[in-house]
Design a protein around this nucleic acid. Sequence first.
DNA 1: GTCGAGATTATCT
DNA 2: GATAATCTCGACC
Length: 207
Amino acid sequence: MFDHSLLEQGALAAAPALLGVTIRHGDVAVRLTEVEAYLGEGDPGSHAFRGRTPRTAVMFDRPGRLYTYFSYGMHTCANIVCSPVGIASAVLIRAGEVVDGIDVARSRRATSKGDDDLARGPARLAAALGITLEHGGADLETGPVTLDFASRPAAGTDIRSGPRTGVAMPGGSDVYPWRFWFDGDPTVSPYRRHVPRRRERAPVTPR
DNA sequence: GTCGAGATTATCT
DNA sequence: GATAATCTCGACC
């Protein structure tokens, strides 16, 4: 089943409801345990903050599509577009539990120490699923990457929220609790604050 | 367990 | 040319 109405409500409303949802690509399926909401305009942490570019165009398209981006030159991360046409809003899928195709996931994540590590982190999750930039813009209802809303958690599951990982925000990231996760789940990634990258420069030898 | 730093490239200015 | 929604590894506790 595919919940269209949920994904039209914007990332902030959709994010906590996406916890427990299963995302599948081929033989590998992952149950989401951690997500983050990204708005478009008004959210400096969003790629769409500066408006529509070729890369972010899919975020302005209809909900239920996959937005992928390249991070730090080595990694692919995946988002679910959560807003009507013309508005940018998306949910970054940060971590999850591999529930199917675990052998394939292990082979794609050879550096992983244990199964909890297979999809703990957005780039790891995309790698475990075999998602690349080529899947950007894919429709999550028709595939090849699909969502299954039937695995949403039972009532009473403890969902927690807090600041987003690795994002600098004016006024401090803690005033934007746009990260959601299952409390105590071993597959949730550890929080890392935003650290400005030290610029590597031709060192002017101090002295 | 925590902390800090380097790797590497699509995308934008 | 600068930037980045990260990952991995090594040092240390």
